[in-house]
Structures are given as C-alpha cells and as structure tokens.
Amino acid sequence: MSSNAKARMLKRAAADILSGMTVNLGIGLPTEVLQYVSPSTAVCLHSENGIAGVGQVSAPEKADRNLIDAGGAYVSIIPGTAFFDSAVSFAIVRSGRLDLSLLGAFQVASNGDLANWKIPGKFSPGMGGAIELAQKARRVGVIMMHTDSKGNPKILSQCSLPLTAKGHVNRIYTDMAVFDITAEGLCLREIADGTSLAELEALTSATFRVPNQDLPRF
C-alpha cells in the first residue's frame, strides 16, 4: 500500500469530522486523521483520561508532565479545555455525548460487529475504553487498512476474534473503499482512486451492495 493511499484514507475520514462535533479518536490511524481536519473546524476532542477540548501535541521541550492524552502523547490545552475525573469522562461516552468515535480494528463484520481488543493467545492487553467507545458513541467509524499484514481481508461476514461491541459500527474507511453498515447490510459508498470493484470484492470476505449510480472516488 502506498503512503499516498493511506493519506487519502485519512483525508477521507477527516472529511466526516464536522464543526460542532464532540469526537474521540483512538490510538494509531484514528489519531492520524487529525492532521487532515481543517484548523477552522470547531471540534471538541475528548480523551478518556479526562479531557474535553484536547489541543495539539506538544513539542518535547514544552511538554507538561501532567497533560497526556489517553494514548500517552503529551498534548496542550486550548481556550475552553476542561478536565474531569474518569467517571465523568465515561459519562460523556455512555450518555451519548460523543457524536463520533473513530476506532482501529482487527476485524469488522458486515453486521457492524467490531473486534479490536484481543487476539487469544497472542495479544491481550485489556480493552481500555474501547468497548464503551464502540458501543455508545452516536456514530462509530472504523479506520483500518483493508487487509492485514499478510494480505488477509479484515472485513468479514462474521468476526472470528472476541468482540469489542456487537453491531455498532456505522462506517468503515479503508485504503480501498468507504462502506456503510445499514439495515440492508454492508453497502459500498466510495472507492479509492486506482482500486477496481473486482479487486475490492476479492479482498473483502463479505458480500456488499453496490449502488447503481457512479461511485464517488477519493
């Protein structure tokens, strides 16, 4: 995968972060989306460790030892930042105040099931806040490479790994396509420049609907 395709995926996900939203971005690709959100977009970034209104990552010499985000990056405040305890932080999540949660994934199923916290026997660091973020944000987006490091599909008809949340993913962004999970199942919305429908079908282990009109490219 070219870095170009990754950048286009990040940019495409960033386009769904709109002024007025309260948003939580997971560690890794979701956080990288931020660099493509226009500085003029009025967004309240939430961090699980008790911040609403997270500012930019700090230069090392300006880092505040008491101010990290949930991923451990030293961040800054902006005019209007608020701090609170972890119970309040997750009250924001569970009560539906997050307009969007963007998460990474090992697997996503066409019914909206998400697996992103455990690979039995290999990787079991704990779920952190992922279950609540995936279950309770008003919209849940997954951003991930379309296939794993061995080229295996990550969009499946059914997840084989332990679930983070059942049936809550609304949209999937990959380096190849954008899908929505709807009442009718997985629907292709957009396709990356340079990707053919045949390639996409070969690397997606779930059936998906293709709209009749021309597919937007990104």
Binding site: A87, F90, M127, G128, G129, E132
Partner: peptide
Amino acid sequence: FVPQGILAERIR
C-alpha cells in the same frame, strides 16, 4: 480486565 469507564463507575 474491566472496561475503563465501568472500572471508574464501580469505584465511584
């Protein structure tokens, strides 16, 4: 392992 917000709330 306890989901982070559930851990916080059980303590609260």
